[in-house]
Amino acid sequence: MTRVLGPVIALSVIGLLVFVLAKGFGSDPHAVPFMLSGKKATNFKIKRLDTDEDVTLEQFKGQPVVINFWATWCGPCKMEHPVLEDAWRRYERQVVFLGIVFEDTEANTKRFLAENGHTFPQLFDPKSTVPVDYGVSGVPETYFITRDGVIKGKVAAPFSDPRQLDPLIGGILQ
């Protein structure tokens, strides 16, 4: 009995160590998990920069929505700006695009939009509460919300080509 017990214990300990190490080294410790997948998107009410109107998520009920969180001090967000504009032109009749600027100043944002142009509504969140409600961990981050108001996808990186959005938008158009 004791002859068997030793190797069994040794193998169990080695197996446990291999499992823990494989799990630890196999995942990015800095990757923030996407917890809100399949959950209802939180409603918000924030100001639209060009018209000063309050905009809510609820007013787009029944339509697929793409929300891009960004800021003017973020270099990748600036590079992504024309890509999202291009995507909006391709999907403007089918999908609502919203930009939400946070951790920034209204003046900086208005200046950037005036210099670079914009089409879809850009909202300004002075208290940065909306991104935290959505589990945002940095900028840029883009969320894809179905007609039922359910968060279907999230991309925590800048888009460099409008075609990268196609499969994600296809997922919320169904």
Partner: peptide, 9 residues
């Protein structure tokens, strides 16, 4: 900035 936003929450 993100941490400031979370702390405000």
């Amino acid at each position: 900035s993100m941490a400031r936003a979370q702390l405000d929450k």
